[in-house]
């Protein structure tokens, strides 16, 4: 595929859509739909200006902290639970129940338990995005190929070596599926946790703008959230593609055969 064609395919529709938005809103006097040019100005002046350090960075740091805690806890627990059939059968209904609770309803409760500080927000994020990671890890560990598992046992590969060379790699495609779901939950919780009690943060600032009817700024904040979600998803994909290169290659080979 020629480069021109490729560029056209990638940027064609986004450019058309942006242009349509730009021109359709150019002379808009509708209070709720300000011209795109104003929104972009607000994005540049506010969100990439003073708010970047004051609001965006704290939000992202809390997000990363909560996510990191969730990953460590969930993968560790997931390996332990997934290895034993009895533990799995005992805990599965409990875990399914916790996963089914819409994570945002935990915010009012955690507010009571942990106050309104950064700690509460990090705990909310960690607690909420832990379940998809945990359940996928359990599932991945459970489904380790039995021949590989028996072979490892025959060669007396146990403990850390077994974990590092067999269990974790074998479960990693599933674990990554969970990590991806967890990340989107984490972003949602980052925003929601700031809607209730916060003095800074992306979610807080957007709602503040909305309440004071700073419409262009509200739209700009939404764009910022969108950009953040997009960037994190890209970053995640990059890591996943590196880590799971062997798996994607394997699947391609299996498919074409």
């Amino acid at each position: 595929m020629s480069i021109v064609r490729r560029l056209g395919l990638t940027f064609g529709l986004p450019i058309i859509l942006l242009a349509a938005w730009w021109f359709a809103s150019a002379n808009s006097t509708d209070f709720f739909f300000p011209p795109l040019s104003e929104i972009l100005t607000a994005l540049k002046d506010e969100w990439f200006g003073p708010r970047l350090l004051a609001d965006v960075v704290p939000s992202v740091l809390r997000l990363l902290a909560g996510y990191a805690v969730a990953v460590v806890v969930a993968v560790t627990l997931g390996v332990v639970i997934g290895t034993s059939r009895t533990v799995r059968a005992t805990l599965e209904p409990v875990l399914e129940f916790f996963r089914a609770i819409p994570p945002p309803v935990l915010v009012p409760i955690f507010l009571l338990l942990f106050g309104i500080g950064d700690g509460m927000k990090i705990i909310v994020i960690a607690f909420g995005c832990m379940w998809p990671i945990l359940l996928n890890t359990v599932e991945g560990v459970r489904a380790v190929d039995s021949v590989l598992s028996d072979t490892a046992r025959t060669y007396r590969i146990t403990g850390t070596a077994r974990l590092r060379t067999l269990v974790l790699p074998a479960a990693s495609p599933q674990i990554y599926a969970g990590l991806r779901q967890g990340l989107s939950v984490a972003i949602i919780l980052m925003v929601i946790s700031e809607l209730f009690a916060a003095s800074n943060g992306l979610g807080f600032a957007v709602v503040q703008a909305q309440r004071s009817f700073a419409i262009a700024e509200t739209w700009a904040g939404m764009l910022m959230l969108g950009l953040l979600g997009f960037l994190l998803a890209m970053l995640f994909k990059l890591v996943e593609n590196r880590q799971l290169a062997w798996y994607h290659g394997l699947r391609r080979a299996q498919r074409s055969s």
Binding site: S184, V206, Q210, W219, L225, F230
Partner: peptide
């Protein structure tokens, strides 16, 4: 498929809670 891929890839990860302010306003 190829024409819409980039747009979908961009719009999909936008957290839907980002729409809350505009949903409230409208």
């Amino acid at each position: 498929r190829e024409f819409t891929a980039s747009t979908i890839e961009f719009l999909r990860p936008i957290p839907s809670v980002a729409l809350i302010p505009i949903a409230v306003l409208l």
